[in-house]
Design a protein around this nucleic acid. Sequence first.
DNA 1: TTGACATGCAATGATTTCATTGCATATTGA
DNA 2: TCAATATGCAATGAAATCATTGCATGTCAA
Lengths: 96, 96
Amino acid sequence: MNDDELDRVFKALGDPTRRRIIDRLRERPKQSLFEICALSFADDGAPLSRQAVTQHLDMLQKAGLVRVEWSGRTKLHTLDPGPLREAFGLWLRNHL
Amino acid sequence: MNDDELDRVFKALGDPTRRRIIDRLRERPKQSLFEICALSFADDGAPLSRQAVTQHLDMLQKAGLVRVEWSGRTKLHTLDPGPLREAFGLWLRNHL
DNA sequence: TTGACATGCAATGATTTCATTGCATATTGA
DNA sequence: TCAATATGCAATGAAATCATTGCATGTCAA
């Protein structure tokens, strides 16, 4: 894992909506975009647009934290905790 | 530590220049702005302006990761790993 | 085969980030 | 005192982030 990948992981964690998405996907894998949308809310409790959630999921995917699989017309998202472990092992661990 | 503080910590870690500053301050505390400037470089190896480093240090300070103390005309910066430990304990630990 | 469903793609816009330059202020030492 | 030193403050600007809306595409099921 290089500096850029480390950037993407930590930046992905630097937003409360994305952390909540991670939390949800950890509880249950293979969730569709609509399922994630249904329980994603902005800071004030207002629901987020579908496209906003899509953009967050794209960032999580680029950081390697979310894996995608298609089932018909449904896109299923699953958490991959690997990059979290890597980022912890490679950098954060030295600073605790 | 609330969601906003968690944001600030992870966002602070999401930039390679800031991670290098943290690395340097961990090796030796109480470094002045100029000392940190002298060994801070952008991705391509070009030196950063003093003001750029100041802005990074401000972010680190707002995240609680850097403490400041004055000695005459010199501002001394020291790493505080507390928020890293908190962020790890409160959120990241559950995902490893 | 049509209509409802799940998602993709594109454009827009406000805000934040990252870095710069120029000038101002305060402290130290000769 | 005066010059060099160490930093602060303000303005600027390119790029990324976060969220929106509108329209298009592909898939399933009645």
